[in-house]
Design a protein around this nucleic acid. Structure first.
Lengths: 190, 190
DNA sequence: CGAAAATTTGACATGACTCAACTGGAGTGG
DNA sequence: CCACTCCAGTTGAGTCATGTCAAATTTTCG
């Protein structure tokens, strides 16, 4: 578990085994069962979670009762509602598990302490958010300019691993389509 | 100019007048005329630009030749193509000026030097990107769940200042609508 | 096996797009 | 200062992608 985590961090900042050692103590491992919630709408998001194993979805529910998936999470990804986490306000998002999931969690206070003790980790999180922001901007452009068919093609090209693990109707929700439309797209009768 | 900039920074990290003084030297003021490009597709984005005065648009052009506006920029905002800026690869975006515009620019190298000399500025940029990411996620949710009419209403509620300064067809592009559709929405004949 | 969930299919409705024409204002050059 | 052009915005008519509602079928899983 910690090995994977160290490798993950090393992808962005260099950290020797010895420097990494104290980092561990700021994170708490936790397991969730399939269908269990990591965050529920109305609660404050108290952790950033690194997925060691499993698969999650982050979504909100519109006033009309429709779910909209903002993000899927699999191994090596971080999940959480950053706005709620930083501001301490109630989240509008839900995060639940599509599979049994293991995460490493850190709280806001622990994160601040970690930054003070291991400055490289502040840099690490900055890079992480930069990448997330870039991906997010790219998704906005795709949503603005591509048809449902094209967005689906992009999705399976970009996230083949997720496509295999997540039911179609949730992919439809991520792409902003109804399950029926996605089904027709898949069967090429569009 | 520097006053506005200092105030802007102080909104996120505390920096006395004395601490702020050396920060100035890392930024270069620059003026652009209306319709002039700050960044052109295919070029590498060499600066992050803080807008002191003026109004800009960041957009890409799809293979079909359609423009899609990713972001408007007005006073107190930062613009640039972060991906190109960080990776040094050619940008797919254009940034041009809707009005005569004054900016303060920093290069990647200067930014690294700034972080080394004034660590609070690394924190400042982290917070900035966090906020940008949060806004970006929120826009994705809006795009997924709201009709054109609702997205337009949201836009004028959220950015009344931009609405007044930018032609309608560019707002349409930002919202993912054709100018015709936006015109019909505006005249309530949906 | 049987219930619940996921997916598919059909019929129809509709929001948004395309193409095309027209209006009105801003800027330009003679 | 007028004629001219250009561009933004509006309007109309027809089309298409996607949505809605409803039901049938298949898959999953206790």
């Amino acid at each position: 578990m910690w090995d994977l985590f160290h490798k993950h961090i090393s992808r962005y900042v260099s950290l020797t085994e010895k420097e990494f050692e104290p980092v561990k103590s700021f994170f708490v491992p936790r397991r969730y069962k399939k269908k269990q919630f990591i965050l529920q709408e109305g609660d404050v998001c108290r952790h950033e979670s690194f997925i060691v194993k499993g698969c999650t979805r982050t979504y909100d529910i519109s006033p009309e009762g429709q779910e909209h998936i903002l993000q899927f999470g699999i191994e090596d990804w971080w999940i959480g509602d950053l706005y709620s986490y930083l501001s301490g306000t109630a989240s509008r998002c839900n995060i639940d598990c599509i599979e049994d999931t293991e995460v490493l969690q850190i709280t806001r206070e622990q994160q601040e302490a970690l930054f003070a003790e291991v400055p490289a980790m502040e840099r690490f999180f900055r890079i992480l958010i930069q990448n997330a922001f870039i991906a997010s901007q790219s998704r906005i452009l795709t949503n603005l300019s591509r048809s449902g068919k094209e967005r689906y093609a992009d999705f399976i090209a970009q996230y083949p691993l997720i496509d295999q693990r997540v039911p179609d109707h949730q992919i439809a929700s991520y792409l902003g389509l109804t399950p029926q439309s996605l089904s027709r797209i898949r069967s090429r009768r569009v």
